[in-house]
């Protein structure tokens, strides 16, 4: 519950800072508000248990980039209180467009079902007839659940599915490595081996499922946790994995993978090097660009 409160606090600080940056007319004030906004974002990062990113945000952004910007403000200030006003018309226009933009984005965020894409990964694609019957005749099954089951599944159309060797044990197919560690359910009693062939069920492609329906289906098949398993542990401590990833190693994935023979996940050594070189070039380029030059005689 503390987490939720903190989130709202930081979100408010961030949004307020950002809005203040837009609104304020003085550059120095803008810079101060920017610090506030970025600091709030760092807080959000900590909330997301991305402690290393948060720390980096504070160090580099708040400590470095902002200082750089303030240097820029000082070096380019032609008067002590420089105000370059925007015309009110432009301001209103920008505000209108911004409002539209934020509305568009928000509606997008809210309308998209972020979990929909993960349903199949959770192993709900194909179930044996046994499992399906078992779920359908479970005790205390509500009417809506029954309808869902009937709508979502159809008998497998192809007869040759029978010839296939046993489908994976039960509906819980641990295709997803992330999901593998979190599900521990035992196979259902009515195993596919004892069931006559040609009685498997598969998802009806014509019936799209929402994430809630998917979660309900998973629960019916005894797969509650598999659906929404998160990749990241709730607590922080991401410095070591991040450092290893930058060095080219992904123990967080490779140690958990199911198939020992699967290819080792690559790390970020090469991007790291690229970024390093990039930074070096930028450093030199910035120094070159910023050095004192002969002032151009104004044309007018």
């Amino acid at each position: 519950m503390n987490g939720a409160a903190l989130f709202w606090f930081f979100a408010a600080v961030t949004c307020a800072g950002a809005v203040a940056v837009v609104v304020s007319q003085n550059v120095v004030r803008m810079a101060v508000w920017l610090i506030v906004a970025l600091g709030g974002a760092a807080g959000l990062f900590f909330q997301l248990s991305a402690d290393f990113v948060g720390a980096t945000q504070l160090l580099i952004y708040v400590g470095g980039t902002i200082v750089l910007l303030i240097f820029g403000v000082m070096l380019t200030a032609s008067g002590p209180y420089l105000r370059i006003k925007t015309s009110p018309g432009e301001g209103f226009l920008a505000a209108g467009v911004g409002l539209l933009f934020v509305l568009v984005l928000m509606s997008t965020v809210l309308t998209i079902d972020w979990n929909a894409g993960r349903l199949k990964l959770a192993g709900l694609g194909k179930v044996s007839a046994d499992a399906y019957e078992t779920a359908l005749h479970k005790e205390g099954l509500s009417e809506s659940d029954r309808t869902l089951l009937e709508q979502a599944y159809q008998p497998s159309a192809k007869a040759d599915h029978a010839a296939e060797p046993a489908p994976k044990s039960g509906p819980a197919v641990a295709e997803n490595p992330e999901a593998a560690d979190s599900h521990g359910s035992a196979p259902k009693p009515g195993d596919v081996h004892s069931v006559p062939a040609a009685l498997a069920y598969e998802l009806n492609p014509g019936r799209r499922l929402t994430s809630a329906e998917a979660a309900r289906l998973a629960a019916l098949f005894g797969q509650e946790k598999a659906v929404v398993a998160s990749a990241m542990p709730a607590q922080g401590d991401t410095i070591r994995p991040l450092g290893l990833a930058l060095a080219g190693l992904r123990p967080d994935r490779d140690l958990n993978k199911v198939h020992a023979k699967a290819a080792t996940t690559p790390g970020y050594l090469l991007p790291f090097e690229i970024v390093s070189v990039h930074l070096l070039v930028v450093l030199i380029g910035a120094a070159y660009l910023a050095r004192t030059k002969r002032r151009r005689v104004e044309a007018s």
Binding site: L110, G206, R208, T210, E224, V228, A234
Partner: peptide, 26 residues
């Protein structure tokens, strides 16, 4: 609804707003 497929809309009446979120926190 941001869907890229031509799924029949009539089949799904569930609004995402009211879907109870599965428990995520450990």
């Amino acid at each position: 609804r941001g869907s890229s497929t031509s799924a029949p809309e009539a089949d799904v009446k569930v609004s995402s707003r009211v879907v109870p979120r599965p428990e995520v926190n450990r």
